[in-house]
Amino acid sequence: MIARIFASDGQYGPSLRHAAAVVAFVGPFLLLLMTFQYIPVLTMLRDSLYSYTLLNPDRRFFVGFENYITLFTDPDRRQSFAVTFGFATVVVAIIVPLAFLLAVYLNGRLPARALVRTIIFLPVVTSAVVIATMWTFLLDPGNGLVNAMLRAVGLARLEFLTSKSQALPSIVLLVVWQQLGFATVLFLSGLQAIPREVEDVARVDGASPAQIVWYVTLPLLARTTLFVVVIMTVFCLQVFAPALIMTGGGPEGTTNFIAYDIYQQAFSFQQPGLASAISVVFMLIVMLISVVQMRLLRTRWNY
C-alpha cells in the first residue's frame, strides 16, 4: 500500500490523492459510524458485565456473566424474547404475501393508481406515537370505535388491549396495517423492474397468468423479497411504541417486546447492566437471523 502511494521517485503519486479522496469522503461517515454504532456497542459489552444504576453510575460492581445468567434463567426475560420473535414471525408471514398481492394489483392498469398508493403508504410516514395513540382510542374496550361498530352489528364487545389473549393480536393488526404500504411499494418497484419481455415470452409459450406469477415473477423478485423480509423482520424486532403507549408491556407480559423490556430494565428498574446484556444477546440473535434469511432467500436468477 505504502509502495503504491509513493511514486518511484519518492514523490506523492496519484494513489495518495486517491487515498486522500477516500478519507475525505468516507472519513466523516466512518467517524459517525464509530461514534454512534461501534463505540456504543463496545460500551454496551463492557456494561453488561457490571451491576450499577443510572442514578449513580460511578458506583458499579463487576459481576462477570451474572447479568447473562439472569437473562437466561428469568422467565420474564424468556417471555419477552418469545413474544418478540413470535410477533415478528407472524407479522412477516402476513405482510409479505399480502404486500406482494397488493403490489401485483397496483401494478395493473388501475384508475387513480397514484391516489391508492398514497393511501396505502400514508400510515408508513405517520409517526409511530400518533398511530399508537390513535389505535388506543380505536380499541378502547368501553368507548372505542371498533367496539361501537361490533355492537352496531349485534356482536359482543372485545377487550382488546386489556385482554391477555387479544392484546398481542391487536398489535399485530396495527403493525400489519402500518407497514403494509412500505412492503407493497418495495414489491411494486421490484415488479416494475422486471423486463416485460420475459413475461411476454412466457405468455407466448402458453403460460397462464398464475404460472407467470409463480414461475417467472416470483423467482425474479427474489432480491426484493429478501429485502422485504429482512426489513420487515428488523422493523418487527424493533417495535417499541405500541408497548410504551398502548399496553405498558402487559397484560401479564404478553406485549413486553424486547426493545421495551430493555428500556424498562435500564430506566425504570435501574438495571442498565442487565439491559446491556439483553441488548448483546438480542443483537447476536438478530444478526444470526439475518444471515439465515439471506442464505435461505439467496437469489438464483439475475436479470
Binding site: 454512534f36 426493545a259 443483537m283
Partner: peptide, 8 residues
C-alpha cells in the same frame, strides 16, 4: 438490524 436494540 444491528443498531436496533444495541443503540436504543
Amino acid at each position: 438490524m444491528r443498531p436496533s436494540a444495541s443503540s436504543l
